[in-house]
Amino acid sequence: MTLLLDIVTTAAILFIVSAGLLAIFGVLEIVNFAHGAWLTVGAYCAVVTGGLGLSPWLALPLAFVAGAVLGGVTERLIVRPLYSRPQDAILATWGLGIIIGQLITLGFGRDVQFTENLLSGTIHILGTDYSLYRLFALAAAVAIGLGFALLLEGTRLGLSARAVIMNQSLARALGLDTTRIRFVTFMIGTGLTALAGVLLTPLTSVDPTMGVAWLIGSFMLVMVAGSSFGALAVACLVFGGAQVLVSTFISPILGGITVAVLSALVLRISSKGFARV
């Protein structure tokens, strides 16, 4: 039973961490290699609220705003000039990740930081005691997924975003302000990523390089999922499940590379990955 819960909650955490990257990749067709830095920024928002003695829950809106504002500046200054050079955009955003990482180091030092737990303790569920926080993460993942579904299906921005995903030049020809759509999408994506950073704090240690470890996993998942949140959810469940199984029964170290290796193999077999789901 614990195994099943582990699988589902691991998938949920993977989903939370990669959702922001997927939103950006789906609409902008740009891989934001500074993704890890935004996770770190979010986590340090939790450190700041903790330092000010505020409720740890306040870190969530703070991180979203900080991530989105930072994302807006980044889109304008770094990403926009590089739309026609996606390879260079990967590199420039990676460079930005270095910059953010160093700035955080200068501000907070390179040591591991401790944050207050959002939720602690366990809950009795399905015949076993399980971490309350991991279950909360599952709920958060579902909320984020539903939130995006609503945003895409139910709002004008979502409609425009879907049009841009399907056919960018046609969308522009029809008079959609693609520049603005990209700008807003990038802000939402980075805001969400920073939010994910806060949600990660109870699960991982907080230090200036914490994001890098998560970057590759989410990057691979997004490659496999293409531009579909449904596909991302499936990929997280399948690969997250495989990761838990490998970690439990073979070796935790090999578990750490399961997602990356499986994603690479899936892409080798079908270049669209799970995008058709």
Binding site: V31, P86, Q87, I90, I216, F219, M220, M223, S251, I253, L254, G256, I257, A260, V261, S263, A264, L267, R268, S271
Partner: peptide, 27 residues
């Protein structure tokens, strides 16, 4: 590199490969 492979895929593999090597060394 295979017929129809995309440039981003080669980059993906070039990321996965060092990660695999590093983890194997750790284990």
């Amino acid at each position: 590199f295979y017929y129809g492979s995309t440039p981003i895929y080669a980059t993906v593999i070039s990321l996965v490969f060092p990660i695999v090597v590093t983890q194997l060394i750790y284990s």
